[in-house]
């Protein structure tokens, strides 16, 4: 099974500035509107900041939930593709997504899902390009697991080393 990269946001680095949202809507639609952003900033006062975007689930609930069969997981990069002709705006996918990563255009009534800026004129995902804290990155599940393991071991060893002194 091919491993696809998806957007990962580090909550320790995220400052909640919303630049990712603003630039996302701008590069996709030529206008600024966070409601049309494919990445969403979440702030829980006072300390929690993160942004959430499509996680490219292996067996996506959104695709399974769509009664119009308008959603399809791309073989190429794992993105969830929206067939705008089929999408009826029923929002079943929005309810099904465990991350709240899908939104609906206030203008077309069609759903909007992160396409890693494939449909724009830019090569790199623009949220990553604009993030002032390098909090957003592209990762595969293997890389995420790898980094988590390294973090955990570092933490554990620091505790062990500190305890042995």
């Amino acid at each position: 099974m091919p491993r696809h990269e998806f957007i990962v946001v580090d909550p320790d680095k995220c400052i909640g500035c919303e630049l990712c949202e603003t630039v996302c809507s701008f590069v996709h639609d030529g206008e600024f509107n966070p409601l049309h952003s494919r990445i969403k900033r979440v702030r829980i006062e006072p300390l929690i900041n993160i942004a959430l975007s499509c996680q490219k689930c292996e067996d996506p609930d959104c695709v399974n939930a769509c009664p119009q069969k308008a959603l399809e997981k791309s073989e190429k990069d794992g993105s969830i593709l929206v067939d705008e002709d089929k999408c009826s705006g029923c929002a079943f996918c929005i309810r099904a997504c465990p991350f709240g990563a899908i939104s609906m255009s206030t203008e077309t009534g069609k759903v909007l899902i992160c396409d890693l800026c494939e449909s724009t004129e830019y090569e790199e995902p623009q949220c990553i390009e604009f993030c002032p804290r390098e909090a957003i990155s592209l990762r595969t599940v293997d890389q995420v697991g790898d980094e988590k393991r390294i973090d955990a071991v570092k933490r554990l060893l620091t505790e062990l080393l500190a305890g042995s002194k």
Binding site: I15, E18, L19, R133
Partner: peptide
């Protein structure tokens, strides 16, 4: 200091 946060559209925080 436990967290640095930003206003909307501010890269500085």
């Amino acid at each position: 200091v436990v967290k640095k946060v930003a206003c909307s559209q501010c890269p500085i925080a």
